[in-house]
């Protein structure tokens, strides 16, 4: 595995993580070491194996489509970094 600086920058962008330029070589090295470990999986023959997403292959439980929660907007927004008139504030998105 050989992820380079550009790969790490792309992954960090996809993950929406600001990382310091000086730290990129170390991240690249660490990620390469980890993917070297992961590549041991290629030795396993899984051609006839179905993927396992859940220990009991359970299906998502469904419930009736009725309102079960009460509105707690004020309580939840009390811990938000920035709100106004009941909405969350972010930098302007649309010109």
């Amino acid at each position: 595995m050989s992820l380079d600086k550009t790969d790490v920058e792309k992954i960090a962008y996809l993950a929406r993580l600001a990382i310091d330029d000086n730290d990129i070589p170390e991240y690249a090295q660490d990620l390469n070491n980890i993917f070297d470990l992961v590549e041991q999986l290629n030795d396993a023959d899984t051609s006839t194996i179905s993927p396992m997403a859940h220990p009991f292959d359970a299906k998502q439980r469904l419930r009736a489509d009725t309102v079960t929660e009460t509105n707690q907007r004020e309580k939840f927004q009390a811990i938000a970094p920035k709100t106004e008139d009941g909405v969350y504030l972010v930098p302007q998105v649309i010109e």
Binding site: Y13, A15, R16, L17, A18, I19, F76, I79, A80, P81, K82, Y88, V90, P91, Q92, V93
Partner: peptide, 22 residues
């Protein structure tokens, strides 16, 4: 956006996400 750490003075939405998480 809704809870937790938020960076100072974000310039745009992407900057808000990236620096808050970084």
């Amino acid at each position: 956006v809704r809870f937790g750490h938020r960076c100072e003075e974000p310039t745009d939405l992407n900057d808000l996400y990236e620096r808050s998480r970084g």
